[in-house]
C-alpha cells in the first residue's frame, strides 16, 4: 500500500461516509420547511399554455 493509495482510500471512504452520515442526520433532524419559505415559482409552462388556449 503506497502513501498515494492510503491517501485516496481514506479521502474516498471517509468522504462518502461523512457525506452519507451528514445527509442522514439532516433528514432525521430537520423538520419540513414552513410554507413561507417556499419558492415563489408557482407557474409552469403548461399552465401558461392552458391560459393561452
Amino acid at each position: 500500500m503506497t502513501p498515494g493509495g492510503w491517501f485516496i482510500m481514506i479521502v474516498s471512504v471517509v468522504g462518502v461516509s461523512t457525506f452519507f452520515g451528514v445527509s442522514l442526520y439532516m433528514v432525521l433532524t430537520k423538520k419540513s420547511a414552513p410554507e413561507h419559505i417556499h419558492s415563489t415559482f408557482e407557474e409552469t409552462p403548461d399552465m401558461s399554455e392552458e391560459k393561452d388556449s
Partner: peptide, 25 residues
C-alpha cells in the same frame, strides 16, 4: 411540499457509501 433536495442527496450518498466504503473494501 415534501422535500426533494435533501432526500435525493441522501439517496445518492447512501448508494455511494454502499459502493465505495463497503463494496470497494
Amino acid at each position: 411540499d415534501d422535500d426533494i433536495a435533501l432526500s435525493s442527496v441522501t439517496s445518492v450518498s447512501g448508494n455511494e457509501f454502499a459502493e465505495v466504503a463497503l463494496g470497494g473494501m
